[in-house]
Simulated assay, not measured.
Amino acid sequence: MTAQRGKDLLLKLSDASDPEAFSIIGGLRTKTLSLNTQMIDVTHSQSSGGWRELLVGGGVRQASVSGAGVFLNDASAVTVRSVFFAGETRNWQIIIPGFGTIAGAFLITNLDYAGEHDREATMALALESAGAITFAAEGA
Results as ranks from 00 to 15, higher is better:
residue 105 A to D: 11
residue 43 T to L: 03
residue 108 I to N: 14
residue 129 S to A: 06
residue 126 A to Q: 10
residue 13 L to K: 09
residue 7 K to W: 05
residue 115 G to W: 07
residue 47 S to G: 08
residue 136 A to D: 08
residue 81 R to C: 09
residue 19 P to H: 02
residue 79 T to M: 13
residue 111 L to V: 10
residue 98 G to A: 02
residue 47 S to M: 03
residue 107 L to D: 09
residue 3 A to I: 13
residue 138 E to V: 09
residue 56 V to R: 09
residue 94 I to K: 01
residue 46 Q to T: 14
residue 9 L to S: 00
residue 135 F to Y: 12
residue 89 T to C: 09
residue 5 R to G: 10
residue 136 A to Y: 00
residue 94 I to S: 00
residue 70 V to M: 10
residue 32 T to N: 12
residue 95 I to N: 01
residue 89 T to G: 06
residue 47 S to W: 02
residue 79 T to A: 15
residue 70 V to W: 05
residue 62 Q to G: 13
residue 77 A to L: 07
residue 110 N to P: 01
residue 104 G to R: 00
residue 16 A to Y: 02
residue 76 S to K: 05
residue 75 A to R: 12
residue 120 E to Q: 12
residue 56 V to F: 05
residue 47 S to E: 03
residue 44 H to P: 06
residue 69 G to D: 03
residue 127 L to N: 04
residue 18 D to K: 14
residue 37 T to E: 14
residue 74 D to G: 11
residue 129 S to E: 05
residue 58 G to L: 06
residue 37 T to F: 11
residue 76 S to V: 07
residue 102 I to W: 14
residue 28 L to W: 06
residue 32 T to D: 07
residue 61 R to H: 10
residue 42 V to R: 08
residue 123 M to W: 01
residue 58 G to P: 04
residue 107 L to E: 11
residue 54 L to P: 00
residue 89 T to F: 10
residue 72 L to R: 06
residue 4 Q to D: 03
residue 23 S to L: 09
residue 140 A to R: 15
residue 10 L to W: 01
residue 60 V to T: 14
residue 53 E to T: 09
residue 53 E to M: 12
residue 115 G to T: 07
residue 9 L to N: 00
residue 100 G to F: 07
residue 7 K to E: 12
residue 12 K to L: 15
residue 45 S to E: 11
residue 93 Q to C: 03
residue 101 T to A: 04
residue 54 L to C: 06
residue 104 G to Y: 00
residue 66 S to L: 04
residue 42 V to I: 15
residue 64 S to E: 12
residue 65 V to P: 01
residue 124 A to M: 01
residue 13 L to T: 04
residue 66 S to G: 12
residue 80 V to Y: 09
residue 126 A to G: 04
residue 25 I to T: 07
residue 1 M to W: 03
residue 117 H to A: 15
residue 25 I to W: 03
residue 59 G to W: 05
residue 122 T to D: 10
residue 111 L to A: 06
residue 112 D to Q: 15
residue 8 D to Y: 02
residue 51 W to T: 15
residue 69 G to W: 02
residue 10 L to K: 14
residue 72 L to M: 11
residue 18 D to A: 15
residue 29 R to Q: 14
residue 133 I to P: 04
residue 92 W to S: 05
residue 30 T to E: 09
residue 53 E to I: 06
residue 19 P to A: 08
residue 136 A to M: 03
residue 57 G to W: 03
residue 13 L to N: 00
residue 88 E to A: 15
residue 104 G to A: 11
residue 140 A to I: 05
residue 52 R to F: 02
residue 77 A to P: 11
residue 108 I to R: 14
residue 14 S to H: 08
residue 93 Q to K: 14
residue 105 A to F: 06
residue 93 Q to V: 04
residue 86 A to W: 02
residue 95 I to K: 03
residue 116 E to Q: 14
residue 122 T to Y: 05
residue 88 E to P: 01
residue 18 D to N: 15
residue 42 V to A: 12
